[in-house]
Amino acid sequence: MTADEPLAERAWLIAESNRLSEQESPDLNRVQEVNRRYRALLPEVTVARCPDSGQVVRWPIDVYGLDGCFWNYVSSVRRPPQPLPRGFLAMAGAMRLAEPVEHPPFAVVPGPDVPFVVTRILNSPRVRAVIAEVPVGAHTGWTISYFGPRPEDIELVNLWGANTYAVYRDGVNRGWSWVVPNTADYDFELTEWLRSGKLLWLAPGDESATLREGPDGCPFAGLPGRRRISLIRNGMIQHLGAFAGNGAG
Rank of each mutant, 00 (worst) to 15 (best):
P51H: 11
W193Y: 09
E5N: 03
G171P: 12
E22N: 09
P80Q: 10
L20C: 01
V172L: 15
P83W: 14
Q55D: 12
I61N: 06
A15S: 15
V108T: 11
F106H: 02
P43S: 02
V108E: 04
G205V: 06
P224R: 11
G175Q: 12
D27P: 09
P149G: 02
E213L: 08
G245K: 13
F147I: 06
G197L: 10
R36M: 11
G235W: 09
L194S: 10
A184K: 14
V118F: 04
I144C: 13
V157T: 14
M91C: 14
C50H: 08
A242F: 12
H239L: 04
V108N: 06
G171L: 08
R228T: 11
D153Q: 14
A129H: 02
G197H: 08
Y186I: 03
H103L: 09
C218Q: 00
W59Q: 13
V63L: 06
L223S: 05
A40L: 13
P224Q: 07
P51D: 09
G87N: 12
R58Q: 14
R233C: 08
I144L: 08
R49M: 04
T46Q: 07
V127W: 05
S124W: 07
A138N: 13
A184D: 15
E24I: 03
M91H: 00
G197N: 09
A209E: 04
P112S: 14
R10I: 02
V134F: 08
E152T: 10
F116V: 02
T119F: 00
W12R: 15
N173D: 15
A90E: 04
R212W: 08
V47Q: 07
S230Q: 13
D187A: 07
G217A: 11
R39P: 00
A48T: 03
R226W: 05
I14D: 05
E9H: 04
L231H: 11
R174F: 08
D170K: 14
D216H: 14
G175H: 11
R79T: 09
P26Q: 03
A209H: 01
P135G: 10
A244C: 13
